[in-house]
Nucleic acid binder design. Sequence first.
DNA 1: TATGAATGAGAATTCATTCAT
DNA 2: TATGAATGAATTCTCATTCAT
Lengths: 186, 186, 186, 186
Amino acid sequence: MTLRADALRNRERLLDVARQELAGGNVALQLNDIARKAGVGVGTVYRHFPTPQALLEALVGEQLNQLVEIARQALAMADIQAAFTFMLRSTFDMLLCTDGGLSVVMLAIEDADCGTTRAKDELGVLTAELLRRAHEAGVVRRDLTAADVRNLVCGVEHAVRTWPDGDQNRSARYLDVLIQGLRQSG
Amino acid sequence: MTLRADALRNRERLLDVARQELAGGNVALQLNDIARKAGVGVGTVYRHFPTPQALLEALVGEQLNQLVEIARQALAMADIQAAFTFMLRSTFDMLLCTDGGLSVVMLAIEDADCGTTRAKDELGVLTAELLRRAHEAGVVRRDLTAADVRNLVCGVEHAVRTWPDGDQNRSARYLDVLIQGLRQSG
Amino acid sequence: MTLRADALRNRERLLDVARQELAGGNVALQLNDIARKAGVGVGTVYRHFPTPQALLEALVGEQLNQLVEIARQALAMADIQAAFTFMLRSTFDMLLCTDGGLSVVMLAIEDADCGTTRAKDELGVLTAELLRRAHEAGVVRRDLTAADVRNLVCGVEHAVRTWPDGDQNRSARYLDVLIQGLRQSG
Amino acid sequence: MTLRADALRNRERLLDVARQELAGGNVALQLNDIARKAGVGVGTVYRHFPTPQALLEALVGEQLNQLVEIARQALAMADIQAAFTFMLRSTFDMLLCTDGGLSVVMLAIEDADCGTTRAKDELGVLTAELLRRAHEAGVVRRDLTAADVRNLVCGVEHAVRTWPDGDQNRSARYLDVLIQGLRQSG
DNA sequence: TATGAATGAGAATTCATTCAT
DNA sequence: TATGAATGAATTCTCATTCAT
């Protein structure tokens, strides 16, 4: 079902404001606050997003779906090493560009929207398959599951985000550390 | 200044309760809540710990000081590789056994207690020196600062803590990944 | 003015849902809620029934008119004792079968629809006449007005409704108590 | 445990305001509203009375206990007819002087305070005993339980309260109707 | 005429902090 | 020094009503 023009406009505005909040370092989105900043009534926010979690998921749903797509592309690549790295880097970039929002959603036990659950599940399955091939090819440590990889990449993103400084290459270096750490040794 | 016997007893009880809160996954300590659970008045809590941050620092101050001591020991070790790993592992263990409390303190920009600031500064200096030697010896990536190492170990601890499962070896594996990732490649 | 077929259908559906609400013990009808449950837009509800009171009156208007008719029949009866009891019992049954809705309307100071006011007025006049004859015949206490009788029967119905249990004869017993209580003593 | 002087003062003021609300016909007490009218912070209200129901029970607890005491006195009376009437009249007066508050508490399925439950239970037991004797003596209809009597007296009080007019004898007349109605006929 | 999105007042509730006792 | 009552700002959430489509 398509939204009414003004409803859509409001929805977009709310997402914009929420994104700014996230960018400002505020992961705990407050619906009232967002309503005020977006210049709409509180009720409007609650109609669109019943809970902060729902808003967060709407905010990063796009990125989550892109990750699923990226996982599919990775699985289609011939070079499994390159594929795995591609997947990792893409995930890392997504996590960073959503200012921690995607990280919260990916690590949440419960989801507000079942579409989110579906995407997360699919991402998990695809990643597991990618990991299986990587294990077979001997390019990634065998003692790690798909969940481990997800946790670690979120952890490293956390490391980048908690200490914001001007160093532009820092995130790249941190990702490098992770990539090297995941490699099958010996 | 020494505390009166009952004041000391209260202080200890408060710290106990706060520790339990942390262990229960609640990093955002609520002073009122803690007062109630400790069976003391709110005023008493505020007298001892003016802010949640102060309580947190009191809670992990001991561990922070131990880390400083450990850093000193590490600097006294002949094998720099072993020393660095020893430092890293100790930090990681401390972070885990304080249920994220130490992590919050180590990453905080502002400290409540100047003793905390002093300890953190000293830890920074000692770690930097350790890192300098590690760089010289070529056992740790050259593009990382002491702050980077601290962030990364906190990030990996974050990865362990956000997805609690029964796997007992998980934290060991994650630390392994970090250690391998920090190694000077080539 | 006759309603369009679909408008009529909507109206009926709304009344049905409202009746279910009442039956469920919810006398405070919420127009939004009813719209949702009826599967129509809120605006539609407001068009048909500007206020909850209007909806309530529409819901029990039929019963109210029946009571007027019953009062007329009672006045046509020869045996005034039987007539009064007939009237009382009919009222009581109507109150019960509308789950308190009719009671609210009968006791309301202000009416939403002037048809309701007219019916209530007429009912009052007819009851007063019935009561006058009953007083003359010495079968009902002389110190009671038509309003008193109405209040008391509503009160007894309230007694039945507030404590719902399985006892099927309870309402009959309560009505008996009322009838006996209204009788001219001595 | 005794309350602090100011706490007690606040508590009394809150009860006063709540009583005025009831007297004004507002049985649905709103804690925020009461706080404002009493000139205290909202938190103070919530500390004293966690829910509107708790406030209501505090408001009429005294009367409820008096009813228990009255029931005991009634049981000590020799003339069971007089005793029953005394009990009924006392209950009715209490219901009226609490402006419907006591009625709500007496008919509530769930209580906020277990003291209320205890008092209600005891009142039920004592009334049942009183009723048993009245049945034996043949002065009250045999087909009524203690719960029935309570419901009916609440119902009649409802009849008095829903249609407030200047007639001072009305409540006395309504009570008379009830008393006569409850009498064992034949 | 029907729809349902938007509104926003306001009710309910929490909680960090202060301060009287 | 300890207590815990009081505060009231802030937040969450609901819902009756209006109005754009």
